[in-house]
């Protein structure tokens, strides 16, 4: 199923949660919605499901308009699955009965068979008769997923589906879920607060802020070629090093950098901590703080001109506070407009 949002607006009284969002999710695509809290990602997801009314714009499922400013198709007639962050299993029904909830249209035998198949698929067959309160978080998560998948919806919406699992469990459950879902070929839109999770499972990521779409694209694109300082900073630690661009090159406190794209005027180079390397011809910096992270060493350094940077070096580095290093960036760097950088 293809999902289309056109200039979608969602308001709560005076508060504008979503200010005209345009988004297209291709059939079978996995889209991750990211953004700080209050950015409108939950409102967007709930508007697609029909839990929120659109106060303007349109929502289309395939070519079917299900919401515009005036009409609103209720959620039960949209056929879109939803997995809640808190799972929201019905407390008075067993695991199997929860899964069967959306299968009323099936005859009894077919229903029982389908529930059984779904339970097996999420590896919960032996918990069929348990009450939700007698299940662990990970188990509840799997039942919630099976329940949403039971009516075989062509699109599935997930609001932080792994957010309330404890970190140790999270990776494992996620792998299984993604595997189970990919097989179906259905469209998935999910919200995540975990950037690495989104990188791992999304085909594309849409980053929102204050109800406005900031950038949309493949994870590699957003990470490597952000269009603003906000996007660059949201997706991971970054040094935004201001400078004056002149075509293919830019002069900065880190020396003369080669650019990955043509630019002119004041810009900021996007330098991730891991992009630094020790280079005898580089800029001299003083190490101020060192944090050992196991797979790398994080350094806080200061250049002669007073700029403070975050630098990751291999664990083999024995740089200590007070030491002087010479650093450079290998390869071409990406830049963003320098406005909004403090």
């Amino acid at each position: 199923m293809k999902l289309t949002l056109e200039q979608l607006r969602v308001c709560y009284g005076e508060t504008v949660a979503l200010a005209g969002l345009d988004l297209e999710v291709a059939s079978g695509e996995w889209l991750g919605l990211l953004g700080p809290s209050g950015s409108g990602k939950t409102s967007a997801l709930r508007a697609i499901a029909g839990f929120e009314r659109a106060s303007g714009g349109r929502v289309l499922l395939d070519d079917d308009v299900v919401a515009d400013g005036r009409t609103h198709r209720p959620p039960e007639r949209r056929g879109v699955g939803f997995v809640f962050q808190e799972f929201a299993l019905f407390p008075h029904l067993s695991a199997a009965q929860n899964i069967a909830f959306g299968l009323r249209h099936l005859p009894k035998d077919a229903r029982a068979a389908r529930v059984k198949r779904l339970l097996a698929r999420v590896e919960m067959a032996e918990y069929a008769d348990r009450a939700p309160s007698a299940l662990s978080g990970g188990q509840q998560q799997r039942i919630a997923l099976a329940r949403a998948l039971a009516p075989d919806p062509p699109a599935l919406l997930m609001d932080e589906p792994f957010g309330s699992l404890d970190p140790a469990l999270r990776g494992l459950v996620r792998e299984r879920v993604v595997e189970a879902l990919r097989a179906g070929g259905r469209t998935v839109v999910f919200i995540s607060h975990d950037i690495h999770e989104a990188f791992a499972i999304a085909d594309r990521i849409a980053l929102l802020r204050d109800g406005v779409l900031q950038q949309i694209g493949a994870p590699e694109e957003l990470y490597g070629r952000p269009t603003s300082a906000f996007v660059a900073g949201f997706l991971g630690p970054v040094n935004l090093i201001p400078g004056d661009a002149a075509g293919q090159r830019m002069s900065t406190a880190l020396g003369d950098l080669r650019l990955a794209h043509e630019a002119r005027g004041p810009r900021a180079a996007v330098v991730r901590p891991h992009m630094f390397a020790i280079d005898p011809g580089g800029v001299a910096v003083t190490v101020e703080r060192r944090v050992f992270r196991g797979d790398r060493v994080e350094l806080a350094v200061r250049s002669g001109s007073g700029a403070a940077w975050q630098v990751d070096l291999p664990t083999s580095s024995d740089a200590r506070p007070g030491d002087t290093l010479r650093l450079a960036v290998a390869g071409a760097v990406w830049t963003v407009p320098s406005d909004g950088i403090v």
Binding site: G50, F51, E76, V80, F82, F90, P91, G102
Partner: peptide, 11 residues
Amino acid sequence: RHEEAARSLGA
């Protein structure tokens, strides 16, 4: 959320 879950499942 339970109400919404039921609605998204067709009730």
